[in-house]
């Protein structure tokens, strides 16, 4: 970083500040940056897409390089819930329980056609999309999506995380959203 000899005053321009190693930003942005670069995934893998997630996290595609090194299998310490694979109606309450066990802020990526909409399994036993029971932030289509697509979904979520207001989780809109899913706010 090039340093100029000038001292910082109240009239200093942004460029001058930056030259001294300062960053002027909003609190929201700095929190968003911290959050987005270490999203701990909770892989809720039920079927085929789970195998593609294994590809995503293994050496070739390496999800860890995007800040998701640690797979958090405990919902309490996870930030993003990756729902991969068909969710049958029998599984629905369990998915919901896992979601409610996660601490705020929490995000959900729905990976694969089955999780998004039921996919080819338009049958009596399959939940037609997980957004019937929990709110979803990013949908990744595909049956199953390629690892690149899952990575793109994570990147998309990072964008959302970066730009999310720190007050969003306390906002009445968010509470209304959760209430519409019948999830109690702690």
């Amino acid at each position: 970083m090039a340093r100029t000899g000038s001292t910082i005053t109240a009239d200093s321009s942004v460029q001058e500040l930056a030259d001294h190693g300062f960053v002027l930003t909003k609190f929201d942005q700095i929190v968003g940056m911290a959050r987005k670069n270490s999203l701990w995934p909770l892989p809720f893998a039920t079927s085929c897409c789970g195998i593609e997630f294994m590809s995503t996290m293994s050496a070739h595609y390496d999800l860890a390089q995007f800040g998701s090194e640690r797979n958090s299998f405990s919902p309490r310490q996870a930030d993003m819930l990756l729902v991969m694979g068909t969710i049958a109606k029998k599984m629905g309450p369990i998915l919901r329980q896992v979601y409610t066990q996660m601490a705020e802020p929490r995000w959900v990526i729905s990976v694969g056609a089955c999780a998004c909409s039921g996919g080819i399994f338009d049958t009596y036993s399959v939940l037609q999309g997980i957004d019937k029971i929990i709110p979803v932030d990013v949908y990744v289509p595909g049956c199953p999506p390629r690892p690149e697509q899952i990575l793109a979904g994570v990147a998309k979520l990072k964008e959302i995380v970066q730009n999310e207001s720190v007050r969003r989780r306390d906002s009445p809109e968010y509470k209304t959203l959760l209430r519409s899913y019948g999830i109690d706010i702690v």
């Binding site: 109606k89 029998k90 338009d122 049958t123 009596y124 036993s125 399959v126 037609q128």
Partner: peptide, 22 residues
């Protein structure tokens, strides 16, 4: 495989493939 609460036997021909409640 199905939930215990289920009342029908789904593979009998008279029951539809799709969820009736959609």
């Amino acid at each position: 495989l199905n939930m215990d609460e289920m009342e029908v036997f789904p593979l009998r021909k008279e029951y539809p493939l799709e969820d009736a409640g959609r």
